[in-house]
Computed example of a mutant assay.
Amino acid sequence: MRRTPLLATVAALVASALAWPADAAPTTFVHPGVTVSRGQLDFARSQVLAGAQPWKGAYDRMMASKYADQNRTPKPRAVVECGSYSNPNNGCTDEREDAIAAYTNALAWYVTRDARYARKSIQLMDAWSAVLKDHTNSNAPLQTGWAGSSWPKAAEIIKHTYDGGWPNSGRFATMLRDVYLPEIINGSNSNGNWELSMMEAAVGISVFLEDRTSYDRAMAKFRTRAAAYVYLASDGELPRTVPSQNLNTREKIVKYWQGQSTFVTGLTQETCRDLTHTGYGISAISHVAETSRIQGQDLYGTDVGERLRHALGFQAKYELGTAVPGWLCGGSLHLGLGPVTEVGHNALHNRLGHAMTNTEALTMRNRPSGSNNLFVAWETLTHGDNPA
């Protein structure tokens, strides 16, 4: 039987899925090992203490932020209710920002070795693990993914580098296992940034819990979604798809890609929506790739790295001001990619040697990068030109 281009694309997707390693999870997990490693933390710390730039400036920006405020009072609640576009917003911002604050204080602890910061991070994590039971309403999976991406980054640093004790670490682990993981592990058929953020959280939580089964499950979903989020010319006439979404005609695929019918390398499923949501997806891809590298499986040399490299470069070009051609999103783009380039730029350009002119220019323009107030924070400090 002669294959149509669409069937050929589906067949290629299945074949590549079967080629992915079945056991992505390491036999022994590396800690701290969610997005940032001990070696990376040590390098960042040494540069800050030496007053070197851009790390000292990045650290100063972090310490001047509201997230490092030692008078911060956590605002936990039993049920966080998040509707579409945070309406209603019952605890959504509080949860995300307390999680970022926990991570911020964990980083501050590591750099300064001042126990006050470790205790503040613990206070924030303990406050939420004492009361949180559920996330509800339409944005519950996304909210869980966003907050669930920051909590394990904080917890990994505190649990594995702070010797002052964390008596309630077991309760915190139970919260991640019972409240967060069930909400995100099955993925999402919404816009791609949802599932990518959810899998970022699931992978990070799995590392903290040392849960190899959940890690493998999350990584498999991540790789399928990453392949369906960023287009490469090698994919064929049409982008790859997630089988459960039943995008089995060109018409359905074009509609899902925000009406974009011309597919070029580096385009993402949400480019024509706006670059802000696109940045969420790109950031999650880079974070999962970084965690996977720390855990012993380097995805940067696979199609994941290729998609990340081209997605960064394509979006960065327009974020920097290149005129938008008429064939792309009707000739108009909504900019605002966000502080999401450091991790991918460091891994792909500095470590692997790929030329990334536009990504580098945007990275330099944004330094020192801050936080998007959702799940990205302080990546010039942790990953900017970091050789570890």
Rank of each mutant, 00 (worst) to 15 (best):
71 N>V: 02
71 N>M: 00
71 N>Y: 02
71 N>C: 03
71 N>L: 00
72 R>D: 10
72 R>L: 15
72 R>M: 15
73 T>H: 06
73 T>D: 12
75 K>D: 15
75 K>I: 09
75 K>N: 14
75 K>P: 11
76 P>Q: 02
76 P>R: 05
77 R>S: 09
77 R>M: 08
78 A>W: 07
78 A>H: 08
78 A>F: 05
78 A>L: 05
78 A>R: 15
78 A>T: 13
78 A>G: 07
79 V>K: 13
79 V>P: 11
79 V>D: 12
79 V>A: 08
79 V>H: 11
79 V>I: 12
80 V>Q: 01
80 V>Y: 03
80 V>K: 05
80 V>F: 04
81 E>V: 13
82 C>L: 08
82 C>S: 11
82 C>I: 14
84 S>N: 14
84 S>Q: 14
84 S>P: 08
85 Y>K: 02
85 Y>E: 05
85 Y>C: 00
85 Y>T: 01
86 S>A: 11
86 S>T: 08
87 N>W: 05
88 P>W: 10
88 P>Y: 13
88 P>D: 10
89 N>R: 10
89 N>K: 08
90 N>M: 14
90 N>A: 14
90 N>S: 13
90 N>K: 14
91 G>H: 08
91 G>I: 08
91 G>W: 09
91 G>L: 09
92 C>A: 07
92 C>D: 12
92 C>W: 09
92 C>L: 04
93 T>W: 14
93 T>F: 15
94 D>A: 15
94 D>H: 08
95 E>D: 10
95 E>P: 00
95 E>G: 01
96 R>Y: 03
96 R>K: 12
97 E>A: 05
97 E>L: 13
98 D>C: 07
98 D>K: 00
99 A>E: 10
99 A>D: 05
100 I>L: 15
100 I>G: 01
100 I>F: 07
100 I>W: 06
101 A>G: 04
101 A>N: 06
102 A>I: 04
102 A>Q: 02
102 A>T: 01
103 Y>G: 01
103 Y>N: 06
103 Y>A: 04
104 T>N: 04
104 T>H: 06
104 T>F: 07
104 T>K: 03
104 T>W: 05
105 N>G: 00
106 A>M: 01
106 A>S: 09
106 A>G: 01
107 L>C: 01
107 L>A: 00
108 A>N: 03
108 A>R: 04
108 A>V: 02
108 A>T: 01
109 W>Q: 02
109 W>K: 05
109 W>F: 11
110 Y>T: 00
110 Y>V: 00
110 Y>N: 00
111 V>M: 11
111 V>D: 11
111 V>K: 10
111 V>Y: 10
111 V>R: 09
111 V>I: 15
112 T>M: 02
112 T>S: 12
112 T>F: 04
112 T>I: 03
112 T>Y: 06
112 T>A: 06
112 T>H: 05
113 R>W: 11
113 R>L: 09
